[in-house]
Amino acid sequence: GKKITDLRVIDLKSELKRRNLDITGVKTVLISRLKQAIEEEGGDPDNIEL
């Protein structure tokens, strides 16, 4: 897996889109939004599978 902070903006957006989440904002905003979603799913933001 990869750390969420290692993802490119395009990867962050595709992961957010897959979860029907907002894809607007700067990279730090996208990271925190995706991180929260992954944690709510019970996942580990430091080890995500794309």
Rank of each mutant, 00 (worst) to 15 (best):
E41K: 02
I38A: 01
I31R: 11
G43N: 09
I23E: 11
I38V: 14
K17G: 14
K13V: 13
E41V: 05
D6I: 02
T28Q: 11
N47L: 09
T24G: 08
K27F: 03
K3S: 09
D6W: 04
R33H: 01
G42S: 07
R19D: 02
E41H: 03
T5A: 13
I48S: 08
I4F: 06
N47M: 11
L34I: 01
L21D: 01
D22K: 07
D22A: 09
V29R: 09
L34W: 00
E40Q: 14
E15G: 00
P45A: 08
D6R: 07
T24F: 08
L12T: 00
K35I: 06
E39G: 09
V9I: 14
T5C: 12
D46A: 11
G1Y: 15
P45R: 04
K2W: 07
D6S: 11
G1F: 15
E41A: 08
E15N: 01
K35R: 15
I38L: 14
I4V: 11
I4R: 01
D44N: 12
L7N: 10
R8C: 03
E15Q: 11
L34T: 02
P45K: 06
V9E: 10
N20M: 09
R8V: 06
D46K: 10
E41Y: 02
S32F: 08
D44K: 03
L21G: 04
D22I: 06
L34A: 02
L7H: 01
V9N: 05
T28M: 15
L12Q: 00
L50M: 09
K13D: 01
K27L: 01
L12Y: 00
D11M: 12
P45E: 07
D44M: 02
D11F: 15
S32H: 06
K27T: 12
N47P: 03
L21T: 02
V26C: 15
G43L: 12
D6T: 10
K17W: 10
K35H: 13
E15T: 00
G1D: 13
T24Q: 15
R19T: 01
V9F: 03
L7Y: 02
N47K: 12
L16P: 01
I48Q: 14
L16N: 00
K27E: 12
L12C: 04
P45I: 10
K3V: 06
I48T: 13
E49F: 13
T5V: 13
K35W: 04
K3C: 09
L12R: 00
K35C: 08
I31A: 14
R19E: 02
E49D: 12
Q36F: 13
L50H: 15
R19G: 00
D11P: 02
I4G: 03
G1T: 05
L34V: 05
L30V: 03
I23D: 05
N20L: 08
E49T: 12
L7W: 09
I23T: 07
G42W: 02
E49G: 09
D44S: 09
I48W: 05
S32N: 09
G42R: 08
I4N: 02
S32E: 15
R8Y: 03
L12G: 01
I4P: 01
K35E: 06
V29K: 14
N20S: 12
I31Q: 13
L12N: 08
T24H: 02
T28P: 15
L16G: 01
L21Q: 04
V29F: 05
V26R: 13
E49N: 14
T28R: 10
S32G: 14
S14A: 11
Q36P: 02
L34G: 03
L16K: 00
N20T: 08
L30Q: 05
T24Y: 15
L7D: 02
L21E: 06
P45N: 05
L34Q: 00
I10C: 12
L16W: 00
S14I: 10
K3L: 07
R33D: 01
D46S: 11
E49L: 11
I38T: 01
G43W: 03
L7G: 02
K17F: 08
V29S: 11
E49M: 07
D22N: 09
L21H: 08
S14D: 15
